[in-house]
Design a protein around this nucleic acid. Structure first.
Lengths: 225, 225
DNA sequence: TTAATATTCAATTAATCTATTGAATAATTG
DNA sequence: CAATTATTCAATAGATTAATTGAATATTAA
């Protein structure tokens, strides 16, 4: 017969492990990362993460069972969202731990992005000052739903898929700083490559919204339309 | 053939998932929690967490493979320790997320500790002020190796197992505040019960060293002897 | 050198997890 | 009302994980 203190500890760590199990799957982590950028339907999440609809749905059930995400029905669509901001912060702390402890993270980054970023890190504080002075253009190249959910105040929104057609909106006489979901998203890399190829002065901001928020920068939100 | 961007994302989330997998087992979480309090041998870790030596060793291999812990040989003994302070902070963020998202945590706490804490939460700021004024006695009832690894400056160390014999060291004319590993450790609860049974004025500080550190309180360390 | 102690390894078994497939359900549209 | 679309459910197969057991290894003490 188990000692009550032992039973208590076993029960408590079993609960903590619910969080660990939820985030032990690479696919669920990708879904969480996407949801950090804004609410999405199953269909959109499945496509973004290259999952079948059934598989995406199953992973989302697991995340919902551990109360990291919530869902609402909007007509035909089930819209998933993070249960609260703490989940996003937790995801970020897990990413930072992986970055600091697993050399493979940097190796993979170098192998896949080697030379592509080819761009100096942007100092965030300086960036915001330049933005306030109107000295740079900050460009958000994520899907609009993510821009609406949270963006750098004053940033322009031109999703990468629309950048080709949106070039006329961009100044040629000042630096353009493109950003997206964070260090492991290639949207801003592709945007900078395209912009440079067309003669624009473009650089990449590596940090995503969560990183900026954690550094104390204000984030603007648009009401859902 | 996989799109290189897809391959990059899969590879990156696979790395993040290494952290998630490491913390998906209740037993590994208990081991991490113990190591947050200070380095320990396999034997001690196995006993504290009710694991067989072989099983404890296997779990520690998993934690080592994900680089959350490190080990050094000291004669016969392998001493395991956290790889760095970030691991401890991550563990805490995971615990806080579980507390905020899983109602079962509070329910389990209430079921196992119901009425036992029977004690009002201690305001940490007030506590430290009273300690500086010599108005309370702060008592650390963890094993000495944990006290040595980090404790409240000025706290007395009397491990719970030695408290029976150590009562003479304690004042009867002022409050005694006992603390241990944190909200899910019962050492301080048992200590307060014993002290009150013997007429001492004792209360429990729920927070552990990590919580206090996160709140900005100084933590003292003793050199290993 | 041998015995004892601490730890890890390897193989096995049972449980859990992940992806797939086909079916079922819910909501909207024609 | 029927067809379509979005999502979830349930069963299955294969892969992975956790605990156990017995053996092997490393270090110390006698």
């Amino acid at each position: 017969m188990k000692n009550p203190n032992r039973a208590f500890k076993d029960a408590i760590y079993e609960q903590f492990a619910r969080i660990g199990k939820a985030v032990s799957s690479p696919k669920r982590l990708e879904l969480l990362d996407l949801l950090c950028q804004g609410p999405r339907s199953v269909e959109v999440l499945a496509k973004e993460s290259s999952l079948t609809f059934a598989n995406a749905s199953q992973h989302l059930q697991v995340l919902r069972a551990s109360r990291l995400v919530e869902a609402d029905k909007e007509g035909l669509y089930v819209i998933y969202r993070l249960a609260d901001q703490n989940v996003c912060e937790f995801f970020r702390s897990m990413r930072l731990l992986a970055e600091s402890r697993l050399a493979e993270v940097e190796q993979i980054k170098r192998r896949f992005l080697g030379g592509r970023e080819g761009m100096e890190p942007v100092d965030c504080k300086k960036l915001l000052r330049l933005l306030r002075e109107g000295a740079v253009t900050v460009l958000d190249v994520r899907p609009r739903v993510e821009y609406n959910a949270g963006h750098i105040p004053g940033a322009l929104s031109i999703p990468l898929k629309e950048l080709q057609l949106g070039l006329a909106d961009l100044p040629r006489d000042q630096d353009i700083v493109a950003y997206c979901r964070g260090p492991y998203c290639v949207l801003s890399i592709q945007a900078v490559e395209m912009l440079r190829a067309r003669g624009f002065k473009a650089i990449r901001l590596e940090e995503g919204i969560q990183d900026l928020q954690a550094m104390g920068f204000p984030i603007a939100v648009n009401e859902a339309s």
